[in-house]
């Protein structure tokens, strides 16, 4: 049974590897649009991961630790992007932030900011789909921390922020790292929401998955080889946190 399952996952990957053209991978990757796309992908995915850390951590804390009303609803809302088709997520972002939307229109009129077709839109789209992975990972870790650690730190004289920084955060550090890696990997592979919300402008919003997709039309073997750069990053991310899933 397990063998069949492994084959189910391994076979397409092996078949893909066989169809890829490896001889020109380096030049395909380091020349022109592909390199721009790779740079943009890494930079935007890093930014999306940073945003997930900054905004996702407090949210995970609220979800794990408070008895706030509507907490379940908020959790469902945050996790929605995990099951929503990414393209639909992109359409949703357009509905909220395009120039035709009230908020997007105001941003443009008042601050001269246009999000669509900008690298910022790439980061937003990636954050939208990637942050849920971070939030659930960290929320899970937080709910496993014995609150008495924090209580003891409190009685020793640490205020709430000091408790979070010196006690809670170190205790969940492995999960924060795991969540961030997962979010980064997801952001790097993001396609649907990005192409819909940020468009596909070479050098500006064309991330590696978009470049791979378009390249698939013109030069499939090269595109497949490029896609293995994404696979390699994902594998590295997952291997680097092996054991984490099993230990928590």
């Amino acid at each position: 049974m397990a063998t069949v399952t492994i084959a189910f996952f391994a076979l397409p990957l092996l078949a893909l590897m066989q169809r890829a053209r490896w001889s020109t991978l380096w030049s395909d990757l380091t020349t022109g649009p592909a390199l721009d796309a790779l740079r943009l992908s890494v930079a935007c995915a890093a930014a999306a991961t940073a945003l997930s850390l900054v905004f996702g951590t407090p949210l995970a804390w609220v979800l794990a630790r408070t008895r706030m009303r509507g907490r379940r609803l908020v959790r469902a809302l945050v996790l929605l992007p995990m099951i929503l088709p990414p393209v639909v997520g992109g359409v949703a972002l357009l509905a909220a932030f395009s120039l035709n939307s009230p908020l997007g229109g105001w941003l443009h009129d008042a601050l001269d900011i246009q999000l669509t077709f900008s690298p910022a839109a790439v980061i937003m789209a990636q954050t939208f789909v990637a942050m849920p992975f971070y939030v659930i990972t960290v929320e899970g870790a937080l709910s496993h921390v014995d609150p008495r650690f924090e209580d003891v730190a409190g009685t020793l004289g640490a205020g709430p922020l000091a408790v979070f920084r010196k006690v809670t955060l170190p205790l969940i550090a492995p999960s924060v790292a795991a969540g961030a890696v997962l979010a980064f990997a997801r952001a790097l592979g993001e396609f649907g929401a990005t192409v819909t919300f940020a468009g596909n402008i070479a050098g500006r919003t064309q991330t590696l998955p978009l470049a791979v997709y378009l390249r698939l039309e013109a030069d499939p073997p090269a595109a497949i080889a490029l896609s293995f750069v994404l696979v390699a990053v994902a594998v590295f991310a997952l291997v680097s946190m092996r054991g984490h899933w099993f230990r928590t």
């Binding site: 357009l94 395009s98 120039l99 077709f117 596909n200 402008i201 064309q206």
Partner: peptide, 23 residues
């Protein structure tokens, strides 16, 4: 200039950039 061109993977997607997005 290519920096201002968003490329659709088919004609539908190309049209959508105007109808639904901000092209």
């Amino acid at each position: 200039p290519e920096g201002r061109v968003t490329r659709g993977q088919n004609v539908r997607a190309t049209l959508t950039a105007v109808t639904d997005s901000d092209a």
